[in-house]
Design a protein around this nucleic acid. Structure first.
Length: 787
DNA sequence: TGCCGGGTCCTTTTT
DNA sequence: GGACCCGGCA
């Protein structure tokens, strides 16, 4: 045990060895957060306070879960298989698989990823003849997901206007469609599981008794529903199984909350503190990653945020180098400068993989890639399409889905005519009519379509039936192999000139299936264990501590290997790129960099409108989130940090002129070293600003703020600044607020960018999706709020 | 049925 | 600038 706790600093030690009570650990960047979390688990087990089966640890990403398990195995000689360590979605999936009947789901329910969900919604809108100008699939999707993430079923969603009432109707129809087809989207996994625990006392009691310790990683990123789910499992409040709620050990950093835009609620941290009457709050402020100048820069910046729990990172590492700041004439020059710097670094012995190039938005990567490519520096771009999201892979998976579940109309629609087999839009329409008449899935409606269309559809149905028969006794990898050939996918891509990569990906899918079978130990002859808490069980058979593995195997046995593999594919979309292993410069968005660290970090494109992003100003608190994002970016660096910005940049096909980011005005002077003079050189001016002169935020961009009196708070133009709360006040006068989405009968959907005047003079500037940005008089224009 | 061209959109993203 | 979607045409 002494081994386990050796080398922890006093705060870490205190956190690891806290008593079994609610605790909140404020873990700053680079403060050894994962170490504390895993050591805590190991310590709890080793001291006999809990068995591996009696704790639940939840993370956001599969990567984090795997990392935790790997470190745990290194610390303790235990079998981590069957332990409840995973992502929110993974753990909910597991519970739903075990209790599928109680959850009202079919046994082999399939999981929709974001793409699948979008196409399901498109299909729904089409079948209901909904005007997709007024109700774009994206809008409907966001509406449904955000409702679910707040734990709201359609009957609980407040809708005060016709637009929202219609959205609620669509939400109802969408859920019905999913239920009919036996599919579940990501948010549904969580909501369904939450409802399972809410409405089924026996199951709730079971898990509440079982998980005496609950550990949560990245707690600042939890949304309302996830927090509610945790409260249920913890036995907090009136639903408690026993007098004592289970010990929730939440680790998070409010300063690194960068996912509010997708529903994360930092407020969960203070709510948790209050609702669980947290007596143990420990701050981990000792940073083991970055040099002093880098930390000072980060601390200084983040101190400009008003809403913080408060925390200051410190290091023993010494000041180190200053933060280097570079002003470039253009985005191309910025990239060119970076390439030169990188060459020097590499020449000086720096590993390429220890150099990270960060940017705010993906669109910025292209020009940097171009520069790196031209000078022959190997690089790797993170983000973008992942393995299981590729079209050809999705096609193959759709065939597998259809083998398993012929009711899955999404899968049917995806591959009925892919590869092309003469089934066109008209045949599909006939089929849909038939399905509607007979009130059955498309697959079964095939029998009711007469004539030529019926014949080609019949051939397709027979193809699927044949595949199902042929693969009945095959292993999973054999099945995948068979399907990619028998479906005609391989042949199709062979005839396509650009098809070679796709064929390789399909082969890779077979390999993935092999790896999956190997890892998960799926055997077709797996003994079927009885599940606890199944229908008809008089007394729920609660697995005693230590029997976690049995439950896990039971779930495995309930799922066919195909369902298990499909689930794996949806919940874990795979790696992005094949070229792992090579020593390459790392390129990614700041969001993607969270949790990573590098010796050298370049933060690029630090310009007003880009970083902070102009759209962030529409949300209340948006600027603070951008600042946290910047904080995350800075704290990725160990030894050397560069920051750069360009005076002109190609954006959306237009040259735009930006002033440098206001964040520069929030950094301490003494940690920065400007590599460029304040005035750009003549040569830079010529290359950088050549041609266009439109757009921009004004004419002072080429001067430092101290010369112009520019305070860094207000660029010209309609962009609102500051905290966004001022606008919330204005809404009392006009009934509208900045950032609000509205619908106009003529111009369609838009977002309010600015408001001015009051009463009869009140005007709103609205950025319309399908039209230009316009000023409209609120007394005259009829605007419907749509959010 | 399938291909081409025009129109439109464009922050961040995990599951 | 570029990806993606849809509509029109061969």
């Amino acid at each position: 045990m002494t081994d386990l706790l050796a080398n922890l600093n006093p705060e870490q030690l205190a956190a690891v060895t806290l008593p079994a009570e609610p605790a909140l650990i404020l873990a700053g960047a680079g403060s050894g957060k994962t170490r504390v979390l895993t050591t805590r688990i190991a310590w709890l087990i080793q001291t006999g306070q809990v068995s591996p089966a009696g704790l639940l640890a939840v993370t956001f990403t599969n990567k984090a879960a795997k990392e935790m398990l790997a470190r745990l195995t290194a610390m303790l000689p235990i079998n981590t298989r069957g332990m409840w360590v995973g992502t929110f979605h993974g753990l909910c999936n597991r519970m739903l698989r075990a209790h599928f009947r109680d959850a009202g789901l079919p046994q082999g329910f399939q999981i929709l990823d974001t793409q699948d969900q979008q196409s399901a919604i498109k299909r729904l809108l089409k079948s209901l003849n909904v005007d997709d100008e007024k109700y774009p699939p994206r809008t409907v999707q966001n509406f449904i997901n955000s409702a679910k993430e707040q734990g709201l079923r359609p009957d609980k969603v407040e809708a005060h206007d016709p637009f929202n009432r219609r959205l609620v109707e669509l939400y109802v129809a969408y859920d019905a469609q999913c239920q009919r087809e036996g599919v579940v989207d990501f948010a549904e996994l969580l909501l369904r599981c939450y409802e399972l625990l809410t409405f089924n006392a026996a199951i709730r009691d079971h898990y509440q008794r079982r998980f005496s310790h609950i550990l949560v990683d990245e707690f600042q990123d939890t949304n309302v529903l996830q927090y509610a789910w945790l409260k249920l499992l913890a036995g907090h409040g009136h639903n408690a199984a026993g007098p004592q709620p289970n010990a929730v050990f939440a680790v998070g950093d409010d300063d690194q909350s960068i996912y509010a835009f997708r529903g994360a609620n930092v407020g969960n941290m203070t709510d948790f503190e209050r609702e669980f009457q947290v007596r143990h709050m420990i701050k981990l402020e000792q940073n083991y990653r970055s040099h002093g100048n880098i930390l000072d820069t980060a601390n200084h910046l983040i101190s400009h945020n008003a809403r913080r729990l408060g925390k200051d990172l410190r290091t023993d590492a010494g000041h180190g180098e200053p933060v280097r700041v570079y002003q470039a004439g253009s985005d191309a020059l910025e990239a060119g400068w970076m390439v030169e710097e990188i060459k020097d670094l590499i020449a000086g012995g720096m590993l390429r993989s220890e150099i990270a190039l960060l940017y705010r938005s993906n669109a910025q990567s292209r020009i940097i890639e171009h520069a790196l490519f031209s000078s022959g520096i190997p690089y790797r771009v993170y983000g973008g399409l992942r393995f299981f999201e590729r079209a050809e892979v999705k096609h193959a998976l759709a065939y597998l889905q259809l083998l398993e579940n012929p009711e899955n109309d999404s899968a049917f629609g995806r591959v009925v005519n892919f590869p092309a087999r003469g089934i066109g839009a008209r045949s599909i329409e006939q089929l849909q009519d038939a399905a509607r008449m007979a009130n059955c899935p498309l697959f079964r409606a095939v029998a009711y379509v007469p004539g030529k269309a019926g014949t080609s559809l019949g051939n397709f149905a027979r193809l699927i039936e044949q595949m199902r028969a042929d693969t009945r006794h095959m292993t999973l990898p054999e099945t995948v192999e068979h399907v990619i050939h028998a479906s005609g996918l391989i042949a199709h891509y062979q005839s396509e000139k650009e098809g070679q990569d796709r064929i390789e990906n399909l082969q890779e899918l077979v390999t993935a299936a092999q790896a999956f079978v190997g890892e998960e130990g799926y055997r077709l002859d797996a003994p079927a264990f009885a599940l606890p808490l199944r229908d008809g069980d008089a007394a729920p058979a609660l697995p005693a501590d230590g029997e976690a593995v049995i439950v896990d195997d039971a779930i495995t046995a309930e799922m066919t290997p195909i369902v298990a593999f499909l689930t794996h594919a949806s919940l874990e979309s795979g790696d992005n790129q094949a070229q792992v292993g090579q020593d390459a410069v790392q390129m990614m968005t700041v969001h993607a960099a969270k949790g990573l660290e590098f010796n050298v970090v370049f933060i690029t494109g630090l310009e007003e409108g880009l970083f902070p992003h102009e759209n962030s100003m529409l949300d209340p608190g948006g600027l603070e989130e951008e600042r946290r994002l910047m904080y995350v970016a800075i704290t990725r660096a160990r030894q050397r940090l560069y920051m750069s910005f360009a005076q002109s940049r190609m954006l959306h096909g237009q040259t735009r002129y930006h002033i440098r980011s206001r964040f520069f005005d929030e950094l301490p002077e003494h940690t920065l070293k400007w590599l460029t003079p304040q005035q750009q050189s003549y040569a830079q001016q010529r290359i950088g600003t050549g041609g266009s002169s439109s757009g921009g935020w004004g004419r002072d961009w080429f001067k430092r703020p101290d010369e112009t009196g520019y305070t860094g708070t207000k660029p010209t133009g309609g962009m609102d600044t500051g905290n966004g709360y001022a606008d919330a006040k204005r809404s009392e006068k006009t009934g509208f607020r900045v950032g609000q989405s509205v619908f106009h009968n003529k111009f369609g959907e838009g977002k309010i960018v600015a408001l001015e005047g009051e009463g009869a003079d009140a005007r709103a500037q609205i950025k319309f999706k399908r039209h230009d940005t316009k000023w409209l008089a609120l007394g005259i224009a009829k605007l419907d709020p749509i959010d």
